[in-house]
Amino acid sequence: MDKTIKISGLHKSFKKLHVLKGIDLTIDKPGIYAVLGPNASGKTTLIKVMLGMVIPQKGNVEILGENIKNNPFYRKNISYLPQIARFPENLKVSELLEMIQDLQKRKGDTDDLIKGLKLEPYLDAKLVSLSGGTKQKVNVVLTFMYDNPIIILDEPTSGLDPISMVYLKKKIQEEKEKGKIILVTTHIMPLVEELADEIIFLLEGVISFRGSASQLKLDQGGESIEIAIANLLTKQHA
């Protein structure tokens, strides 16, 4: 199988707001890619285009060799962790897990994840009664239960406690070692430095930097990514 994500000439605007202004991006090597950028730079939009949730005005997206237009089935190769977790209120956690596996028509590997995230006591609880952090843990289970070649994580650490965060990071590393493409958006720079092999920096709807964290620091100057990014932003506005 063609293990790449290929995006070319991607444009998206919401009414008068031009969010993505011609994105060209090819990812053909496994690894962890951090999609960074200031607020409203188009990170989430880009991810949602890849997932088919946002329909672009122009441009082509190919995932694992399949054009995503009018074709929902390429999504079986993508695991997605959304930013906010909200589920049907009256379902139990175990029922939700079964439902997703039923919809996907294949069994996922949930046991280890449930144990790792200490979710056993909540399996019979209704989703409406869970705290935000516990719901996010359920989301993590849903994301990692399949062995999919592409994983997309949108602000994965929001709402998680330190223990689960450590577990999640370990999980991400493990998946990377299996040779997967992992895309992460986040505002937490230490996480980027710890995990990311490559940084894709979006600014005002175009990719303004792509390369490793050390490359970014070298280019822009500064001892941390935060400072390097701040330098990059001030240069752009100068």
Partner: peptide
């Protein structure tokens, strides 16, 4: 109310 849930479903291999 089911908007986030719909988003979860939209990421699955199911037709809109």
């Amino acid at each position: 109310n089911s908007r986030e849930f719909s988003e979860l479903l939209l990421a699955q291999p199911i037709k809109r």
